[in-house]
């Protein structure tokens, strides 16, 4: 089993952080993982994306051109990547921020108003985590003990007070 995630949005939305969380959930679930950020001009405020592979087998290319799971948090990324999702794959779309829908019938699209959900639940800035929760649920990497351990690892010590909020955001996403 191999999951190839492509996460994309604007710099500052926590795309790389969400990728790191997915990678650690995979690692703690006993799988092979790799995480590759875009490190070009994107880092200076433009679009940003990140490839994460979670697999039962050793990983060859860490760069993902045809994801099995796509998460997008802005319209340019939606337009750019929705066509690249593998047939039979899934797309997780922040419908608060993305205009439009896909007419692809060979993939499963989840339109989740993650940014709105975050604002409504006092979880501002955690739309990325809400979407990550939904992804983990849909792919079946949803062992809460593993997820909580991964969250504790990726949240920097200075922000340890945000652990509960992140957990709430994850659960919100899982039930969305």
């Amino acid at each position: 089993m191999t999951n190839e995630f492509l996460l994309a949005g604007f710099g500052g939305q926590g795309i790389l952080f969400a990728g790191k969380l997915l990678a650690y959930v995979g690692l703690y679930a006993g799988k092979e993982v790799s995480w590759l950020p875009s490190y070009g001009p994107e880092m200076r405020g433009g679009t940003c994306n990140c490839s994460v592979t979670v697999s039962d087998d050793p990983i060859g290319s860490p760069l993902i051109l045809e994801p099995s799971e796509l998460m997008v948090m802005n319209t340019p990324s939606f337009d750019k990547f929705i066509g690249t999702v593998k047939a039979g794959g899934m797309a997780f779309i922040d419908s608060t921020l993305v205009d439009g829908t896909s007419d692809r019938t060979d993939i499963k699209c989840f339109y989740i108003p993650a940014t709105q959900l975050a604002a409504d639940n006092g979880l501002k800035g955690m739309a990325n985590i809400i979407l990550t929760g939904k992804i983990l649920k849909e792919i079946g990497l949803d062992d809460m003990a593993v997820i909580e351990k991964a969250l504790q690892k990726v949240i920097p010590p200075k922000k340890a007070n945000l652990l509960d909020a992140n957990l709430n955001a994850l659960k919100l996403g899982m039930n969305a």
């Binding site: 990678a23 993982v33 790799s34 950020p37 860490p62």
Partner: peptide, 10 residues
């Protein structure tokens, strides 16, 4: 190379 430098693995 940039790929090995930037990617994360266990």
């Amino acid at each position: 190379d940039g790929l090995l430098g930037q990617m994360m693995e266990p």
